[in-house]
Design a binder for these strands. Sequence first.
DNA 1: ATGGTCGGTGTCCGA
Length: 262
Amino acid sequence: MRVATWNINSVRLRIQLVKDLLLKNKIDVLCLQETKVMNHLFPHDELSDIFFHQHVIGMKSYNGVAILSKIPFVSTGSIDWCNRSDARHASALFNNGIELHNFYVPAGGDEPDPAINDKFAHKLQFIREMAEWGKRNNDNDAKKILLGDLNIAPLENDVWSHKQLLKVVSHTPIEIEYLEKLKLSQNWVDAVRHFIPSTEKLYSWWSYRARDWKKSNRGRRLDHIWVTPALTKHLSSASVLSEVRGWHKPSDHVPVILNIKI
DNA sequence: ATGGTCGGTGTCCGA
């Protein structure tokens, strides 16, 4: 079972990039974030040859997530976080027993102080609610996947400069602490770092603002795939498709793929 | 130290 997560930054604008990804990579479950489209305008038909099963949670202009699958759903869902219906979560239980949660965590704005920046306060509250949800639903034997754009790069080698990003939203100690609490809530395992050691720089996002993203290489690893301990022994490989950042009219995020023997 | 670029409900706001 090959599972991928990709912040697509408008699925309608980049539908051809999604098709190109699928031509080059065998993917069974593709999870998208920032689809930026209402459900009735989602390009279902463009992908229905490959993904017969589609669970889409969208809104106008902002956010939006989707789970596109070759594997049938037993059930699907979506949770509202922070009392907002803002299309940041979609879940699916597959007929192979795996439960998947696709998240688009708030970016958090520029100022890393919840007292003066409502967006940062929202981000922290969102992660806190995820951790509470994790604790409520903890089941050591369950086969679960949590993935998506978590908008936090937790490790020193998840950013181009640990020191220079300590006060930059996405790599501040408070966010990393909250993310760690979320991780502990269900003993989640970072499936990508399971294969790519933390001593190695690894990014899934490069800003549009760089003159040359590849040359400056000031990236961050904001996109993650986590699994519960029951799934860890089934993992076979993980990859980050950094070359996708160099495609024509790219998203600022690239796909992250996990291969599971199931 | 600053400003740089995307996308969409487009001459602003969120990322």
